[in-house]
């Protein structure tokens, strides 16, 4: 057992934890993006609100979400530990240090980018996760006529709402849910919040262009055949597609709603 302890307290082991938690957070981003595409449905948020209920109540997903919170915290703590250790390794700084000559800006500033992301995560979770769990969002009822397919919506007062419901009554599907969609729509009317989200996604892009590839290097998965693929996914998938997908959401609500 002590070999595990040694392994994880070594300089390599701390990086292994950064790598594993980082990659787990990357997979989460993919799921989160795909799920949140429901926001673009033009259905008054029915699909999105049903999805939000599912994600917060389906037990296996709840387990994964705790793993996720743990990963964020571990990733941040180990980043701090490694950074402090690295600072100690060079107590006297260079008077002239030409970092640009030998490395990329983002690879040297992962801590700075990560700090922006941590602030973002805290603010993001407060705006949506916290308010959703604390019942600080409005309630809504959808009545869909299963024959004609038309849907009517009505805001519910807090007194009318006891819990999420989904039932069919006389050919009419009734869904009562917490209206997280409204909350999203409402939050993204603020230009500064939209700007903050877009900036955070730029930081995410630079963080992941280095981070994704770096995680594989730390794991020791560096192979001529696969490195080009890892780089491609890191740059185009995690550096471009995912941040643009996320940034599109606040922009869509700000400009199109």
């Amino acid at each position: 057992m002590s070999s595990f302890k040694q392994a994880f307290t070594s300089s390599l082991g701390k990086k292994l934890i950064m790598s594993l938690t980082g990659l787990f957070l990357c997979t989460f981003l993919v799921v989160h993006l795909i799920g949140n595409l429901q926001l673009f449905h033009d259905d008054n948020g029915k699909a999105f609100n049903e999805y939000a209920y599912f994600m917060t109540h389906f037990p296996p997903i709840k387990v994964v979400s705790y793993l996720l919170y743990a990963s964020i915290i571990l990733h941040a703590i180990y980043a701090l530990v490694v950074t402090l250790h690295n600072k100690k390794a060079r107590p006297v700084k260079y008077a002239v240090y030409d970092g640009q000559a030998n490395s990329k800006w983002n690879s040297r500033n992962m801590g700075f980018l990560g700090t922006i992301l941590l602030f973002f995560i805290v603010s993001h979770m407060y705006s949506f996760w916290w308010k959703y769990h604390r019942d600080q969002v409005p309630y809504i009822e959808y009545r869909s006529d299963l024959n004609s397919g038309s849907t009517q919506t009505r805001e519910l007062a807090a007194a009318e709402f006891n819990d999420y419901q989904n039932f069919t009554d006389n050919g009419v599907e009734v869904v009562r849910a917490r209206d997280l969609y409204r909350q999203v729509e409402f939050a993204f009317q603020e230009w500064w919040l939209v700007a903050f989200y877009v900036i955070a996604m730029v930081a995410l892009s630079f963080h992941l262009i280095h981070g994704f590839r770096s995680a594989f290097q730390t794991l020791g998965w560096n192979h001529k055949k696969y490195v080009p693929l890892i780089r491609f996914i890191g740059i185009w998938g995690f550096g471009v597609l995912i941040p643009i997908g996320f940034a599109a959401m606040p922009l869509y609500f700000f400009f199109c709603k």
Binding site: S11, A89, G99, N102, S103, S107, H210, R213
Partner: peptide, 22 residues
């Protein structure tokens, strides 16, 4: 060798690639 490297007080790699370039 890794244990001795840590013992000596060197930092951890963050894969910037500066070493390879220099």
């Amino acid at each position: 060798m890794v244990a001795q490297m840590d013992e000596e007080g060197f930092g951890s790699c963050t894969n910037t690639g500066a070493c390879e370039a220099e």
